[in-house]
Amino acid sequence: MALQRPEPVQVVKQRRDGALRGLLSGVPYIAYLGIQFDRRGDELTAILPFDEKLIGNPALPALHGGVTAAFLEVAAIIELAWGSLWEEIEAGRVDPTADMAPVRLPKTIDFTVDYLRSGLPRDAYARARINRSGRRYASVHVEAWQDNRARLFAQGTGHFLIPQPPDHPSE
């Protein structure tokens, strides 16, 4: 049996990046905050470029606590949605070059933010880790930092409701 040649790397990248763009482009609030995602293989890093409108305490100045909460929550939701989309992309069931149907995003049940130090007026980064993802519920932890990866300025944990496929209505 002849070995199948692997696809050219740029084709693979194009498909994965296209799927990620499709996932993000539908959410106005992600664009409003200016959140971007950096992808290395299946690993995502959320990036929040600094902007004046993100300030919550002009005297320090510091990022708004609500912005930090929103940034962490977005990172968690996208990580979850990306995890399930990834399997579809790799199995060839999603073609981001065609018009992607809007991805149904997980719904937040609860989210707890731990503010460790004040957010400085510069770019912030976040990575989410899915601790448990069942058929209906998922638990996700997120860490956010600015200048030093080891010095977190906030962390969060949230529980999410996984969207059910339309042909499998929730029992």
Binding site: V27, Y29, L33, H64, G66, A69, A70, F71, E73
Partner: peptide
């Protein structure tokens, strides 16, 4: 988005 609601509640 829940994040905007969080920002409001935090404020």
């Amino acid at each position: 988005h829940g994040g905007a609601v969080s920002a409001l509640m935090d404020t």
